[in-house]
Each structure stands twice: as structure tokens, then as C-alpha cells.
Computed example of a mutant assay.
Amino acid sequence: MDQFHDIRPYNDDEVAEVLYNLVEMPDFINTIIGFRFAKWPKFLQAPLAFGVKLALKRQIAKIKNVHDFQMIVANYMERMIKTTTTNVEYRGIEKLDKNTGYLFLSNHRDIAMDPAFVNYGLYLSGLNTVRIAIGDNLLRRPFVSDLMRLNKSFIVKRSANGIREMMAAFGQLSAYISHSLIKDQANIWIAQKEGRAKDGLDQTDPAIIKMFYISQKKEKIPFSQAMANLKIVPVSISYEYDPCAFDKARELHQKSTTGNYEKAEFEDIDSIKNGIVGQKGKVVVTFGDVMKEDFETPEAFVAEVDRQIISHYAIHSSNKAALAIQQGLPSPDRVFSSYLDRCPQDIRETVLSMYANPLKQQQAYLAK
């Protein structure tokens, strides 16, 4: 029996059936129409749906396995990079061994783009693409779950209820990650904490590290050795401009003023779309050093992960400009000043903090 069947990515022999079912989902077809043909009149909905289904059926006929599907994703990535970035730079990727499976423990800014940029860098360098950890809160629509699992995503059951169900979910997740890395020699991407760092401050949640250890702890493997077995590589991702910055700021501002923020039903899906199509400026992905057997506790491990992620974070002109403005100095970047002019006044200070915080955090670490 496949103990990971409900959380793992789809296998090659499942791809054809999943794609066929996807094309027959009205919600999927309507979402594509809304994304690509939003300004077209409603009375054209039916012929557009017919045309989209026909085009998709022609495209999926060429897809026989996960690799074929990811090659189509790579083509979209190339187009997205050309239209929404000024440059994408990869640092430290030359240190990675093509024959080794790594656990990429990453800071988190964008729901879909963070693992996508890591994946694209690995693809360009001839390394295996990652299996991506994704929370089940993002999978409320069945077609989203199917698309993610076709793209080698596995599910983190954040909605588990009760201690017993939660511990069972953590145990299954830990076992899947260990199995992927140690047995399959696959690469894994997972964020350093649940949710994006909307305030621009990166910090690893010790619970993530403790979850990694659950499956190997059952085998009486010491913590330091267990972590070394997973070959964890801290990853820093930085965007010159965050397409979702104003939306994140509204959430933070509302929480700070009212104490509460209620997400719209499909708000995360909108964030994914905005992150893909929005302007990002320069993007830098930095791969740190493989974590060794030098850490006896999760807290010590977390401290080193944070040090690498924060110190390796690529600082952009937008970060410097935001900090200068906070300090009452003239902005050294006209582009950022123009960007800030488009920001609603009530969230302006929150947006400034989001961009200044990574630089402040890095300066504090380097001053230690």
C-alpha cells in the first residue's frame, strides 16, 4: 500500500488521467477564461470554453509524464521571466551535486514564485527539480490541487483537527520528506515557516525542524545525524519589487488597527496570479552551504539556518531606498520613489517597513 498516496505528487502513470479529468472541469476552464479573456463579453463564454478545451486537449495529448508537464511549465517560466523581471541571478548553485538529494529550506515571499525560481535554476543547471511542499489551505479548488501535484508538489495538512490527527499528519509528512531525500535522492523545497514573511523579516520556525526529525527519531537516530542525513541547504530569495506588496501591507495594516483580518475565499489564488504576472524587477536566489553534523538541538540548527538566509539575502536598491526614506533622507532610487507614489497613503509606512526590514535585519546580523 502507498502510505503517501494522499499527499505525494502524481506519478508518471497517473498523469494522462489527471490531465483528461482537468480539461473536463468547468471550474478549471472558467478560471482560464477569466485569466486570459477577462475583458471579453459574457455572451462569448460558451464558445470560449469550447475553444479553450479544444486547445488544451491538443496540448495535453503530447504530455506523457511529469517531465513533459514540467517542460511546458519551463516554457511559461521563460516567458514570465522575460516580461516581469529585469534579471534573475543564481548564486551558490555551482556547489550542488547532481547526484545528491537536497532539502532546500527557503525564506518565503511569494506562494508560487519562490519554489518556481528555485526549480528553474536547478533545471538550467541540469539538476533534478524539487518536490514542493504546499499547504492544503491553497487547495480548496480541486483543479489547483491537481495542477500542483502534477508539478511535483506534495501536501502539508495544515487543516488537521485535534492533536492526534495533527501528529499523524506531521509523522506522515516527516516520513515522506525523509523517504524522498534518503531513499529516492530527490530534491525538496519547503518554506522556513508557515506562510509568507509579509513584514520582510525572515525567521525559521523550530517546529519545522522538529517535524523533519520525527521519522528518524523513531529509528533512534541522533538529532545531529538525522539533520545531516537530510542535506539541508538554506536558500535566500529576494525580489527587487514584490507584486503582492500592497495587498500584504493592507493585511498587516488591518491586523494592527483592528486586531483581525479575514481572508476572502480565494484570496490565496489571487495572490498566486498576481505573483506570476506582477513586475518583480531583479530576482536573486542564493543557495547556502549544506548543514553539517554540528547541531545538537533544533534551536541551534535554526540559528544557523537564519544566519545563512539573512546574511545571504541579496539587498536591492528598493531596500536601500526604503530605509533611507524611513531615516528621513532623500530616496536614492527614482524608480522606488515612483513606485511609492502609487501606494495608498494609509499603508505607505507598512510598505516602507516591508522593504526596509530585510536590510535592517541583515545589518543587525552582520554587526554581531
Rank of each mutant, 00 (worst) to 15 (best):
H179K: 02
K183E: 11
L173S: 09
D184T: 02
A160M: 04
K157Y: 10
S174Y: 06
M166Q: 13
G195Q: 10
M166V: 14
A186G: 04
G162Q: 13
S159G: 13
H179W: 04
E194N: 09
Q192S: 06
E194W: 02
M167W: 09
S178D: 07
S174G: 09
R164Y: 14
S178C: 08
G195V: 14
A169V: 10
S159H: 07
Y176E: 00
I163D: 13
G171K: 08
Q172C: 09
R158K: 08
A168Y: 09
A186F: 01
A160K: 05
L181M: 05
N161H: 15
I163W: 09
I163G: 04
I163K: 13
A175S: 13
I188N: 01
L181V: 14
A175K: 09
D184A: 04
E194L: 08
R164E: 14
S174C: 07
H179V: 04
N187Y: 02
A191V: 05
W189C: 08
R196P: 15
A175G: 10
R164N: 14
N187K: 05
G171E: 06
N161Q: 15
K193E: 07
R196A: 09
S159M: 14
W189H: 04
M166S: 15
K183A: 08
H179D: 15
D184V: 04
F170C: 05
L181T: 07
M166T: 15
G195N: 10
R164S: 15
R196L: 10
R196K: 12
R196I: 09
A191M: 03
A175C: 12
L173W: 01
E165C: 10
G162L: 12
A169F: 08
A175V: 08
Q185P: 01
L173I: 09
E165S: 15
E194Y: 03
N161W: 05
W189S: 08
I163Y: 13
R158H: 09
Q172K: 13
W189A: 03
A191R: 06
Q192F: 06
A191T: 12
H179F: 01
N187V: 07
V156W: 03
Q185W: 00
E165Y: 06
Y176S: 00
G195Y: 03
A169K: 09
R196Q: 06
I190P: 01
S178H: 11
I188P: 00
R196H: 11
A186H: 02
R158N: 11
K157V: 12
Y176Q: 01
E194F: 03
G195R: 06
A168E: 15
Q172V: 14
I177A: 01
I188Y: 00
I182E: 05
R158P: 15
Q192M: 14
L181W: 04
